[in-house]
Design a protein around this nucleic acid. Sequence first.
RNA 1: GCCACCGUAGCUCAGUGGUAGAGCACACCCUUGGUAAGGGUGAGGUCACGGGUUCAAGUCCCGUCGGUGGCUCCA
Length: 695
Amino acid sequence: MPRITLPDGSVREYDQPVTARDVAADIGAGLAKAAIGAKIDGELADLSATIDRDVTLELITPMDRKSGESSEDALYLIRHSCAHVMAEAIQRLHPGVELVYGPPVESGFYYDMHVPPDVSLSSEDFERIEAEMEKIIKEDRPFQRYEMPAGEGMRKLEAEGSKYKIDNAQRAVDAGSNELSWYATGEPGQDWEDLCRGPHVPSTGRIGAFKVMSLASSYWHGDADSDQLTRVYGTAFADRKQLDRYLEQLEEARKRDHRVLGKQLQLFHIDETVGQGLILWTPNGSVVRQQLADFIGSELQRQGYHQVFTPHIGKLDLYKTSGHFPYYQDSQYPPLIHHEHMELLSDEGCSCSELSNRLRSGEVEGYLLKPMNCPHHIKIFDSQPHSYRDLPVRLAEFGTVYRWEQSGEICGMTRVRGFTQDDAHIFCTEDQLADELIGCIELVRIIFDTLNMDDYRVRVGLRDPDSDKYAGSPSNWDKAEEACRRAAATLDAPFSEEPGEAAFYGPKIDFVVRDVIGREWQLGTVQVDYNLPERFDLSYIGPDNQPHRPVMVHRAPFGSFERFIGVLIEHFAGAFPTWLAPEQARVLPISEKTVEYGRNVLSDLKAAGVRATIDESNERVQAKIRTAAEMKVPYLLIVGPRDAEQNAVSIRARGIRHDLGAAPRDALVDALKREIASRGRDSAVGALFETAGAV
RNA sequence: GCCACCGUAGCUCAGUGGUAGAGCACACCCUUGGUAAGGGUGAGGUCACGGGUUCAAGUCCCGUCGGUGGCUCCA
């Protein structure tokens, strides 16, 4: 006798088992028609699911009629169902294709499949696949679930012979389920079907709007040594409008892509003759980088850091001591070896393959492009004896490191092979650790605040309590973990503790920023390290006149200039705040007649340290504005006879499609100077037009 | 590294195995114009690179390099 509680708190009682659809029909014919699924006791289910006990029930409709938005549950049902339809369409076109696994994901769904060698699937097939899907949807065939006891189900799958489906079923059985379920798109035994847990929309006709998006490869079980699968991505929404909106968003995101903007705004260049993943910083991008470096440099000085410089290479032995070689050698450039050493090896009869082995094992004398800055900083620390009175020692360097990233991973500025970290290493006592961590966090907060990057979270990586792979004593770990927690809590951002995510040498605090497209980027990091002081046998003399081991903190609030600025370009869509903008103002003379006056304005700006140019081209002002706007110059200073007469300039600010008015020349220069010096905190130019200062 | 797709002027992109194209940018000329493209003329190419098939290759095939989307990886 089920008692069913609805979301509004009302209760319906039935004297026999009912389906979710029956309940919907009782509430109203409209709802029954609209519903595509149900949530029974918080669990997503088919509309046809039978209810024979007391439950809470929520009916899922494709979208909220008022807002036009779909719930996550509705999209889940639609996309999961669409994955089936796509799989059926592909199998119709290519009968040899074996299905593996097809779940909904954040912005759509995919289906992994095994494509036999004689079949080729490419994006040119999308139209045909979509046409086939369209047919299946038009046929409006019901999704019909049927179940079998595990044993019987396994026998059925064995008979069908798909190792992937057998594997899926075995996993379900291993996870404790004692029956297997299938969904037929139509009549079981007659129409297309797939082993599936469900749930689905009632029929194919309820899939609103869909699109096959892209083709990729994947590995079975995510294992690179396992079968290579083909993954077809698609997306589906409740209606065409939602799908179109999504596609527009993608287009918008593409326009913000730092690789596109980087070219358009001439921020950086990657040249295939230089090498993959190696960034050439062009003048414009270099300005942004230099400004950030100056900004962080001033904060470091305030926090008592010492700036150091170290070379790009170091002896192989150094990295054997630190443990970076050979542990990370697969992601390092190979060692640099002098040809005399090679000749020596050759004289000893060393073959090429033997040389290759020796390079791997590090049994050669050579240098490594540094994969990290810490060993060099450690050597600076260790070049002098230290008293506890000297600590903490904070050594900072914009240090360039090189890592051999896999070629397929390299992406614009965000994943590269050579990059410059805003790195620093703090050598301190156990007791100083907590304060030092708070100092690091403070720095990150200042940076994120200044750049208006407020969508970020903090991840505190702790040790896995069941593992003994960690360096350092448990009591030190306890203290360090507590210090990390306390430091993380001083930020306003949400933070999560993740056991098992610590490095083997110490706990860490990572900063994960979400960009406009919703992607997450790990940028800054703060890590506690017990391991390297041990490996390099670092010590300081304590108050007891005995040597003690210092603790190290590694920290890089930006992570690297490359990745940080890549994310920043997308964050600002290329429209950098004035203090960072490569070109802060451009003087636009109305005609040749005011070029001379414009040059005077320009020289005022330059004298005040403003990065400004003048557009003396033989164009109308409309064209000059357009060109400057495309380069996202924050302030356009238009000078015509009217302005020259009054010793003023007319100002147009980026993003405002008309001019703000005219201001006296010296007032403007002064305002720009103040705005830039404040790094955006003082919007002095805007304020000109709210005060009596304006002409 | 693996899979799919892609590589044509500085940029964005057209291009049926048969003479290499457009728009923007660039140079020169006309125009001197008050808030998102004034007009004209011109220059610009070993069609990524190396092989092959063909009477003939930007186009078809193979390889290399590079890019894009994923997968795997990221001290």
